[in-house]
Amino acid sequence: MYAFNYHRPKSLADAAKLLGDASDGKFIAGGQTLLPTLKNRLASPSDLVDLTGIAELSGISVSGGIVSIGAITKHGAVATSADIRKAIPALANLAGLIGDPAVRNMGTMGGSVANNDPAADYPSAVLGLNATMHTTKRKIAADSFFTGLFETALEESEIITRIEFPVPKRAGYEKFRNPASRYAMVGVFVAETADGVRVAVTGAGPCVFRHKEMEAALSKSFSPDALKGIRTDPARMNNDIHGSGEYRAHLVGVVAKRAVQNALG
């Protein structure tokens, strides 16, 4: 990696100021994407502002039908939280499927969501559960947060502080792993929420997306069979050596059925 200045502020205000003062600064949380990128010399930030020392970004609470998770909460903590496992077991299960134990003990929810890797797991839960990102500047609804490949609605120096997940009636996640990387080649998060059924698909396309046809079908009948015959457009899918657009489009259907089955328990 190239040389950079390292900062570990104690407050959000200091973090924003440090980033603003840097010529080409970047926030770092768990670093599970950024550090390998730096090691491969694919990025050369002047400054890294480490968010993991900011106390107000941590903590898990459940009240009033809302699960609130601090942005620097590690995947491992989400996976093993008794409160989350009780309120939204699908979310805890999803966290337990991210990476390997080393990644789960370093990577953070806020970091993953802000990075919006097309093959990451969390974006599907955020979108599927209609979560709200609380940031240093505002609240952002899931539907307007993920804007494209590695792109989000976050502005420069805007930090996710916590993410609020409404507790759904039921939800399920199914992940079809890329055999090599074990990232999601197709991941589908299905939730029956107060606002209706939501189906969020990650891994398959350039950015997590909602599958409206599936949502409509599941609204009529929340069962795997309701998804029979629903096609996904291969042209909208990623295409690489591990999976063609056709294969991924097919998998979306298979994986969605299994996600519904998981939700039904």
């Binding site: 055999p179 090599a180 990387s181 990232y183 050596i241 591990h242």
Partner: peptide, 8 residues
């Protein structure tokens, strides 16, 4: 397939 992300 130049990394373990792609070489399985």
């Amino acid at each position: 397939t130049a990394s373990f992300n792609d070489y399985c």
